[in-house]
Design a protein around this nucleic acid. Structure first.
Lengths: 254, 254
DNA sequence: GCCAAAAGGTCTGAGGTCTGACCATTGACG
DNA sequence: CGTCAATGGTCAGACCTCAGACCTTTTGGC
């Protein structure tokens, strides 16, 4: 199993969306959580645009559900325009470019997420703990050459992103790559959750080029510290990165 | 909703046991996760010995499942000897003293948990990130007087514990109380997970009085730092505490 | 060009879970 | 001392999910 597959496994295994504690009363938690986990994995760049999702039978194993449920989830993604499915050998579901605002609720996203705002702000607190911690651990544990390769590739993808959407996805992917360096499924799970929340928040605010530049400088420092195996420096750098992002989000979301 | 109820909500909402990614093929993930979450909440001292669990209808809401499933889960706990159930007004399920080794599998726990050892060791890594982070946050955010009262009460319970089992439970409760200080459901969730893992590991090794003494000194320092609102000091103290516990566990579990 | 492998598409019976209502028991309160 | 509200106990129908086999389509390799 390659590193990418391992990361995919961890991300797909990540806790279902914290919908406030209670599950949907409709009575179909499994199907909905599958849709959410797959959509999150795609949005966070685990399966980039144009790539092919694993076969349904494999996804069923990764997600821990039956193939029938996976199929329903993929059908939902297909209806949402996130994937295209073809049959036969070499076929599968390829990730399509996400439409601008395909949201199931046509209402404005800010209004819809008003109920989730406390949870999203909580995610920022959690992130300030988890991501710097992941940087610290990533700077101490032994990591394979392929792991480091993944890290550099993810960093490069962030720097060469052509548009905000691409940058956003590559950014998430970089943060996940750092977490994956630790080899801790718990940490990857936690970072997946916070990145999903951050992603959702960033979609709701305007992204300025100055923000991206600032972010890129911090990314460089973080990656350098992790590669140099300097735990304290890596943690500090990620703390600053989280603080700045959090300040931006807290300011623009209120 | 009181602080205690809020904590109960967070703990019960915590992610289901990370059974390695895949769910039990038997096909009853919900029921089993209910049993595990309730048992964890009891073991971690959210519902101390002799206290009464919330009514079934309320638990159903907290756990996000139907009352029928809650009833099955409580029935399982009853068969395991963890609770006693009485009917009528003022009745309910009261937490009974846990029998020494009621485990569903009569096999030795070490052998049974051999498969989970990588996950348990991973929990130690995650803990080293999450608990110090919770201490840091708890030392920065505003906390209510009742929150601080909870903290002091939990600390006092640890110090006055009469036997190892009681000490173990009070210790978990103290760590949860610190996490609850942050007001972050994510952090409480994470600490719940790591405490459940730590609890499981500590049950498998002999506990020496010298370990408890060492631990108590660190607890005092941690609580003092949190109360004094010194984030760096609190984090550092908890890091040491986690490192020492981890060293003990890693040494005795291999 | 043929064929086997790889993928999605379909079906069926069994079993788990949810919703919602109703019954039975008991103690708190007037 | 009686009432009744709170609590556990029970049931039925609908829906969801699972497992596994089988079919259909497509393509890569011989």
């Amino acid at each position: 199993m390659s590193d990418r597959d391992q990361l995919a496994h961890d991300v797909l295994t990540a806790s279902r969306g914290r919908s406030g504690g209670e599950q949907a009363p409709g009575g179909r938690p499994t199907f909905e959580s599958c849709v959410e986990r797959l959509a999150t994995a795609i949005r966070l760049g685990v399966y980039p645009y144009g790539s092919t999702l694993p076969p349904e039978r494999e996804l069923a194993g990764l997600l821990g559900v039956s193939r029938a449920t996976v199929r329903e989830a993929i059908a939902a993604l297909r209806e949402a325009g996130m994937v295209r499915t073809t049959r036969g050998r070499g076929g599968g579901s390829v990730v399509d470019h996400e439409p601008p605002t395909p949201g199931s609720e046509p209402g404005d996203p800010t209004g819809a997420s008003a109920l989730r705002r406390p949870e999203l702000l909580d995610a920022l607190v959690f992130r300030r703990v988890v991501e710097p911690g992941a940087c610290f651990v990533a700077s101490t544990v032994g990591r394979s050459a392929t792991d480091l390769e993944e890290l550099r590739a993810a960093h490069e993808r962030v720097r060469s992103a052509q548009n905000p959407a691409e940058h956003r996805q590559a950014d998430s992917r970089l943060h996940l790559a750092i977490a994956a360096l630790t080899g801790s499924a718990y940490l990857v799970d936690a970072v997946t959750q916070v990145q999903a929340a951050v992603h959702e928040m960033l979609l709701a605010i305007p992204v300025l080029p100055v923000n991206i530049e600032h972010s890129s400088a911090q990314h460089a420092e973080i990656v350098a510290a992790v590669e140099a195996r300097e735990p304290e420096r890596a943690r500090r750098a990620m703390e600053e990165h989280c603080d700045d992002t959090a300040a931006l989000l807290r300011g623009l979301l209120r």
